[in-house]
C-alpha cells in the first residue's frame, strides 16, 4: 500500500512528527481524524487532551493543545475533573480498549451514567498493545494473543466487549455513542466531530470507539491488517451510531 502523505492538521504539533507509533498503526489515523475535527470546529484553544497509558501515551506531545498524560485506565476521571472545574474547556479522554474496558471500566460506566460532558475516544485494537500483545476485553473469539496462545476461548474468557452498545444502553437522552473505523476515515472523523459538538452543546456524555490496527502485535502484513479490520473485526463490531441526541441523527 502506498502511504499518501497527509496534509498535517493545524492542531498537530509539528515538532513531534513524524509520530512515534509503529508503521501501519491505527492510532495515528484516529489522531488525524481528531486533529481535523479540532481544526474544523476551531477549538484548538479550548481543547484539553488526556492520554492514557497504553500506546496512546505516545501522544502526550502529539498536538499543540494542552495535554495531560494520566495513568492506565484513569484518563476518564482526570478529564471529568478538569471539565467539572472548568466547563468552558472541551476535554478529550483518549484511551485503549484495555484502559477503557478493563482497568478503567468503572470510570467509563460511571462517567456515562452521570452523563459527564466529556468526549471519550477509545481505540479498539483487540489487544494490549503497549505491553506486548496480551488479550484485551475486545480480543476476537479464537484470536491468538500472548496470553491466549491457542486462541481466545470464549468459554473461558467470555466474548468481546461491545462498548458503544453498552454506553448507549446505560445513558439517557443527550448522550452520544458511535463506532467508527480507521478503515472508514471520513465516517470516523464525522463521529468524532459529532462527539465533540455534543460535548460543546453541553448535551451529554460522548463516546466514540475507533476500530484500529496493530500490525505489530497482530503480526500481519499490510493486506492481512486491512483484511482483519475490515472483515473480521467489522463483522463482530458493527460500525454506526448507537445513540444520537434528538435532532442530531444523520
Amino acid at each position: 500500500m502506498v502511504e499518501i502523505l497527509p496534509k498535517m492538521p493545524k492542531s498537530w504539533n509539528p515538532e513531534s512528527k513524524p509520530h512515534k507509533f509503529c508503521p501501519g498503526c491505527g492510532h495515528g489515523l484516529v489522531l488525524k481524524a481528531l486533529g481535523q475535527a479540532i481544526d474544523e470546529l476551531g477549538i484548538q484553544d479550548r481543547v484539553v487532551f488526556g492520554c492514557d497509558i497504553g500506546c496512546s501515551l505516545l501522544s502526550w506531545d502529539f498536538f499543540n493543545v494542552d495535554t495531560v498524560q494520566t495513568h492506565h485506565g484513569r484518563t476518564t476521571p482526570v478529564m471529568v475533573g478538569i471539565k467539572r472545574a472548568n466547563p468552558n474547556l472541551v476535554v478529550v479522554a483518549y484511551m485503549g480498549d484495555g484502559g477503557g474496558y478493563a482497568i478503567g471500566s468503572q470510570h467509563l460506566v460511571n462517567a456515562a451514567t452521570r452523563n459527564e460532558k466529556i468526549t471519550c475516544i477509545l481505540v479498539n485494537n483487540t489487544n494490549y498493545a503497549m505491553t506486548g500483545g496480551q488479550m484485551a476485553p475486545t480480543t476476537m473469539p479464537g484470536q491468538k494473543t500472548e496470553t491466549t496462545p491457542y486462541g481466545r476461548d470464549v468459554e473461558e474468557t467470555g466474548y468481546p466487549m461491545l462498548g458503544p452498545e453498552m454506553v448507549a444502553a446505560i445513558t439517557r437522552e443527550g448522550a452520544y455513542a458511535a463506532r467508527g473505523s480507521v478503515a472508514k476515515f471520513a465516517q470516523l472523523k464525522k463521529y468524532i466531530k459529532k462527539a465533540l459538538e455534543n460535548q460543546m452543546a453541553g448535551r451529554g456524555f460522548s463516546f466514540v470507539e475507533a476500530l484500529s490496527t496493530c500490525p505489530t502485535n497482530w503480526r500481519t502484513n499490510a493486506a492481512q491488517t486491512w483484511q482483519f479490520i475490515e472483515e473480521t473485526m467489522t463483522k463482530y463490531f458493527p460500525l454506526g451510531e448507537f445513540k444520537v441526541p434528538e435532532g442530531k441523527e444523520d
Binding site: V48, V68, T70, H71, R74, P77, V78, M79, V80, G81, I82, K83, R84, A85, H107
Partner: peptide
C-alpha cells in the same frame, strides 16, 4: 484522579 483534573 478527578481531584487531579480539578487541580490541573
Amino acid at each position: 484522579f478527578t481531584l487531579i483534573g480539578g487541580v490541573l
